[in-house]
Design a protein around this nucleic acid. Structure first.
Lengths: 198, 198
DNA sequence: TCAACAAGTGGACACTCTGTCCGCTTGAGA
DNA sequence: TCTCAAGCGGACAGAGTGTCCACTTGTTGA
């Protein structure tokens, strides 16, 4: 998902279909942010959007996929910055700096769209999404760049996942609910980045 | 949960009730380990145990609570070792050593009982369980002990949660499915422990 | 040994959500 | 304006949940 721009040239979407797609996304966005996104059902979305269940299922297999569609553009934007943006987020800075910048950007993204991220996670799990694969590849590259010793093959793989673990959305939600500010969270992660990749 | 031994002196359980409780736990243990624990339903357990739904609901509000009951004794054993066992797991060793030992013990526990841990997590979230609170307090104490500077109040709080994040059961499951051995995972976490609490 | 009765049992019920199916409607190209 | 595939939406069957309550059974005191 969201690694390359799609839209090759399918038969072209009918006007009413496009209108309904927009309605669905708008209604879903409202539902996700107005209550616990994990309790939103397909039926809720259909009702709120004023379309039938069949219509909804025609495009989205489940609620998570709707949340993912909404989240997609934001994740894409960050991915772009990681690949081609200015340092320290983009290439050029030392690994620790880049990791810290990535953490900061992810915290920002989580803070802005936590409802969508939580909604996107119900059902099939987080690690299966294409976005997770991207973050993982990024962090893996940073740690590999840092680790001069060659021996650490599997080590680097596992480390990438371990370094992504603190970005688990439920954890973020929990920290925020406990009164931690995003500034504090970012500070902690920055610290972590510099200790792990000194 | 599971911080202090309960069983004060309730009216005493009837013999048939005790028998059914045992049946339920045994049947549930079988179900959890023989397929994806997140798909086990109350109905399944009732059927497998040969009791009615009402009987099952009398004791356990949901499947997660059954998994937790099964997991309880194992967690209790580890908690005991952390509080009063030999170093480096128990008190006496430097923080980094203790954290590494804790990681190793948790990986062992996850490896032995991953099905139960995953089953215990469906529904209400992981962070709400008493066990998580215990691990958190432990790690928090270790980091606080290490951090000589006093300024780091909130920092230490968030750090404890961040250091626990790599122990998320879904992540463990994923790493194992990817072919990582527990040895590799433990090595990575030991490394992390020594870098964060040098 | 035997009531008496509280504790325990289990299945029926009413709900909610899911995912599919299919007859009807409608937009867009000829 | 006609045609028809794309699109629509509600009905339906299936699975799971949690509750309720009439029936059964273990335990206790006489």
């Amino acid at each position: 998902m969201n690694l390359l721009a799609d839209q090759p040239e399918r038969p072209r979407e009918r006007a009413d279909a496009a209108r309904n797609r927009a309605r669905v996304l708008e209604a879903a966005a409202g539902l996700f942010t107005s209550r616990d996104p994990r309790t939103v059902t397909m039926d809720d979305v259909a009702k709120a959007a004023g379309v039938g269940r069949g219509t909804l299922y025609r495009r989205f297999p489940d609620v998570a996929s709707i949340a993912r569609a909404l989240l997609d553009e934001h994740e894409r934007a960050l991915q772009e910055k990681l690949l081609r943006g200015e340092p320290p987020l983009g290439p050029g800075a030392p690994p620790a700096e880049r990791l810290a910048a990535f953490y900061a950007a992810m915290v920002e993204l989580l803070d802005a769209h936590i409802a969508l991220v939580l909604g996107a996670e119900t059902g099939p799990r987080r690690f299966e999404t294409g976005a997770y694969g991207f973050w993982r590849a990024h962090v893996r590259a940073l740690t590999a760049e840092h680790t001069t010793t060659v021996a650490a093959g599997a080590e680097v793989d596992a480390l990438a996942d371990v370094l992504l673990a603190p970005l688990a959305p439920e954890l973020f939600e929990r920290l925020r609910a406990d009164g931690r500010t995003t500034t504090e969270i970012t500070a902690t992660l920055t610290n972590l980045a510099h200790r792990v990749l000194p």
